[in-house]
Structure formats: C-alpha cells, structure tokens
Design a binder for these strands. Sequence first.
DNA 1: CTAAACTCTCACATTAATGTCAATGTCAAG
DNA 2: CTTGACATTGACATTAATGTGAGAGTTTAG
Lengths: 130, 130
Amino acid sequence: MKIGELAARTRVAPRLIRYYEQQGLLVAARADNGYRTYTDDHVERVGRIAGLVQAGIPTRLVKVLLDAEDRAARDEPTCPKEVAEQLAAELGPIEERIACLTRSRDTIRGFLERTRHEVVLREADAGHPA
Amino acid sequence: MKIGELAARTRVAPRLIRYYEQQGLLVAARADNGYRTYTDDHVERVGRIAGLVQAGIPTRLVKVLLDAEDRAARDEPTCPKEVAEQLAAELGPIEERIACLTRSRDTIRGFLERTRHEVVLREADAGHPA
DNA sequence: CTAAACTCTCACATTAATGTCAATGTCAAG
DNA sequence: CTTGACATTGACATTAATGTGAGAGTTTAG
C-alpha cells in the first residue's frame, strides 16, 4: 500500500510517517516511481511508534525500544550491553508514566461513572417531573 | 518551603515549577519578600504534574485532570458537563498510552531478565575458565 | 487526453516544553 | 558589612514533534 492508505489506517499523518522513517524508526520499500510502499506489518509498526511518541517517549528511545521488540520477536535475546543499559534506564521512567496515567484513568472513570448516574437521574426526573 | 527545596524534592527544575504555575496548574503563596512558598502538598502536586506532562499530556489537559482529582478528593463529584466531556475524550487516548507503555515495559523486563542471566553466566565462566 | 488526487522532496513556520542568561533583590554566614 | 547562595522577572534560544505550502512528477478516473 502507499503512504496515503497507511496514513488512513493508522490515523497518522503522512508527514509524520515520513518523519518517523527519517528518524530511523521505519523502513519503507520504494516502488519504481519512488513512491514508498508498505505492508500490513507497517500498519502495526506505525501505530506502535505513534503510541509511544504520544506517550512522551522521544523518537530516539522509541528506536531502541522497537529494536528490542524486533529482536524479541525474532527470538534473538542477544542485545549489546550498551543497549541493555539504555533499556534499563528507561524502565523506571516508563513505570512512573504508567502509574501516573493509570491514576488519572481511574479518576476519570470514577467521574464518568458518577456523571452517568447523574445523567440517568436527570433523565429519570425529566421522564416523570413533579 | 521555597522553590529551591521543592525543586530538589521533586527533581523538577525551578524554571518548570514557575512554568506550571503560569499555566495555572499550581498556586503558590507568596512571602512578604515575594518569594513563592510551598507546603508539603505541593511536593506531591508538582510530582504529579511533571509525571503527566512527561507522559505526554499537555498542560492544558493536565489542568483538567488535576481539577477533577481535586474535586474527587473533596468528595465533590459535581463537574460541569463540558468538563466531563473533556475527561471522557481523554480516556481513550490515555488508555492507549498505558497499553503502549505497558507493552514496552514488559519487553524491557523480558530483556533484562535474560540479560541478567547472561551476565551471570559470563561471570560464572570468568570464575572457572576452561 | 485531461483533471483531480497522490506522491515526492524541501523549506519554512509553529507549538510546547525546556534551557539559559541577565539584571535585580533577599537572606544567611563569616 | 560583605560575600555567596538563592529568589524574582523577563527575554531569548533550543529541541522535538508537527503543520503547511510550493513545485514537480505520477496515477487514476472520466
């Protein structure tokens, strides 16, 4: 598929897909005409990249992470010591982010539950007003 | 306490603490001399702000979130419909971020486990080489 | 064949979060 | 009282992620 379809499927702007490629997070084959061509695998890859970037992971680290995932997927647990150190250094901050977001998620859920009840009550009132 | 201590305790630069205040995420009392003064509560607050910002939540939304948490803490489940909508809109993206980060966390953990084993093995080899 | 829709590259603008520096004021210790 | 550490404000710089537009080639539908 071409970049437009990939963009549509991932809801990531073509501009960004090219940017991610430029940052080395993504490799795209080229058709004879120079157009980038992608496979279904790229859909997941781009989604993952965008997710991590939106979660505040800078592209430089996203690269390290995805490289690690790629190796894991290929059952290649070998990983240069230096990379392992980078990963280890990221673990803490990532866990903090998860904790922070989880807490906010729970807060929001709590609010929405109560709000939904209120709405229901209000609708009930509207249904049979005094 | 003054801004320096708060910065040290939260590991957030004074520059940013002031920035967060300017964005309305934080209210600081002022001493007679104009110095900002903080309480212990601010330590947690600033930590939370920094955590969310680093998790990719823009300050504008952090404000909405923290306002909600404040209300929840005060048992004030009332919340303008408009705010509830904003919260609802954030929920999805936040969950995605959590999912993304969680996956990366697991990948990293897996790697580190295996790496640790390798290191141990290598050390063992070093201990009694052929 | 032609027009519209896509693609390419390149350049420039923007936004948010942050760093940095300068000029000034305050405070605490010697 | 002076010096050094810290605070204040304000201006300016930077970085990363993104938006935007131009100019040129490609493809597809009519």
